[in-house]
């Protein structure tokens, strides 16, 4: 009888947590509630005479899945820039901050992202999906000496970047269709 009451209250708790997961806007909060959901589910499995399934649920649902979610969330907050420019346009030394670096850091601060600039020669890119992961490629046009910022057309961030660089004569934003950013 006592176990029945506990199981019933756990089921009600489960419904409440599921509703909270659906409603919540904050990703990190959602992940924590997801782990709690798995714990409650595991205890329900135990009450229904399935300790085997409960063990698997605890190990996978409340440990591995939240870890995967947290890592992908922290990955989402990076803005990766590949630079093919050799002058001080993107330099971030304390005594001479480049114009492009200033612009991009202001842009990323506006969205709460973390700016990461990789300097690259061709062939030094490693990793499985490296070339598809780039948000922006910076190049210098050899004929007109303007800086070209290449980004994906599908990204909403590019519109904002285009707005910000409207008044800069030296900077041009180019939107590329999906699949052409593999450099």
């Amino acid at each position: 009888m006592n176990a029945m009451i506990i199981a019933d209250s756990l089921q009600i708790l489960l419904i409440i947590i599921a509703a909270v997961i659906v409603i919540s806007k904050d990703n990190l909060q959602m992940v924590v509630f997801f782990a709690v959901f798995s714990l409650v589910t595991a205890s329900l499995y135990y009450f229904n005479q399935a300790p085997d399934v409960a063990l698997a649920e605890v190990a996978i649902g409340s440990a591995i899945m939240p870890l995967i979610f947290i890592i992908s969330i922290s990955r989402q907050r990076e803005f990766i820039v590949i630079s093919h420019v050799n002058d001080e346009f993107l330099s971030n030394h304390t005594y001479k901050i480049g114009k492009g670096y200033e612009l991009l850091s202001e842009f990323t601060r506006h969205y709460g992202l973390k700016l990461k600039i990789y300097k690259s020669e061709l062939g030094s890119l490693k990793g499985i999906f490296r070339s598809r992961n780039v948000d922006l490629i910076v190049e210098k046009c050899p004929s007109t000496h303007r800086y070209l910022l290449k980004g994906k057309e599908s990204s909403i961030l590019m519109n904002k970047l285009e707005q910000m660089t409207e008044n800069e004569p030296l900077i041009e934003v180019i939107k590329i269709r999906e699949g052409e950013t593999d450099d």
Binding site: P51, D52, A54, L55, A56, A59, I60, A63, I64, L67
Partner: peptide
């Protein structure tokens, strides 16, 4: 423990393996 006592108690290869993976991660 879960892997080696899998034949008499709850758990077994998969459950113990998942816990081992969590430990390594």
């Amino acid at each position: 423990y879960i892997i080696i006592n899998g034949h008499t108690s709850p758990g077994g290869g998969f459950q113990g393996g998942a816990i081992l993976a969590t430990a390594i991660l």
